[in-house]
């Protein structure tokens, strides 16, 4: 039974990875007592996976997906459809490890021996949203890449079969992109908004008295 992983182990992972792929590791974040994030260059996306699996023993494929960092132009979908659309902040701010593009890949692999995982990110070029497929390294990435393809419109070079996973074949658009409207919210105001209104007559400060 391996020890519960600590921060020195996480830092060592980052150092090891940097030793293997060098400057392709653009940024890294080690959050104490939590987790480790690395961002690699787009061209090194598959190479990183190969290094992690074959050189560093991260043999367990956890998941692969993407993040669209553009703030949704529709907010929470709670706008009054008759009123003019409100002004919204549309600056793209990436999360941990930064980034330059709107879409970012997000993958996670874990070491079955050390029981420690690493989150890997990489920028997806805005012009042609294509990254290398992970299938040659982790066969299990197949379905995850299909899902990411249909949900974000990111293509995977070397994927044999990018059919839609969930949606009909002739479905247009990529639902998890932020500019894809959630139609249910467009046609009818969301009643759940009441949930977050301050209680009338109650304590108007934000520190509720938890029982």
């Amino acid at each position: 039974m391996a020890e519960i992983p600590g921060d020195t182990l996480r830092q060592r992972i980052v150092d090891d990875l940097r030793a293997h792929i060098g400057a392709d590791l653009i940024d890294s974040v080690v959050k104490p007592g939590d987790d480790v994030w690395v961002r690699v260059s787009t061209s090194a996306w598959r190479e990183t996976a190969r290094v992690l699996r074959h050189e560093m023993g991260f043999d367990y494929f956890c998941f692969l997906s993407a993040i669209d960092w553009m703030p949704s132009p529709y907010g929470k979908g709670e706008d009054d459809p008759t009123a003019p659309p409100p002004e919204r902040d549309d600056t793209i701010r990436q999360g941990y490890t930064g980034g330059d593009t709107r879409l970012q890949m997000l993958g996670r692999v874990t070491s079955s021996a050390l029981h420690v995982g690493v989150n890997i990110k990489c920028d997806v070029p805005d012009a042609d949203a294509t990254v290398d497929s992970w299938i040659p390294v982790y066969a299990g990435a197949n379905w995850h890449e299909r899902e990411t393809h249909e949900m974000f419109g990111i293509s995977f070079a070397g994927h044999p079969d990018l059919r839609n996973m969930y949606l009909p074949t002739d479905f247009e658009g990529h639902p998890l992109r932020k500019d894809f409207p959630l139609l249910a919210r467009m046609v009818k105001p969301w009643p759940g908004i009441v949930d977050v209104e301050p209680l009338p007559g109650g304590d108007n400060d934000e520190e509720g008295d938890a029982e």
């Binding site: 929470k76 979908g77 709670e78 932020k178």
Partner: peptide, 11 residues
């Protein structure tokens, strides 16, 4: 995954 983006954490 899409629906969580338009809901609050408790929801």
């Amino acid at each position: 995954e899409k629906l969580t983006e338009v809901r609050t954490y408790p929801q």
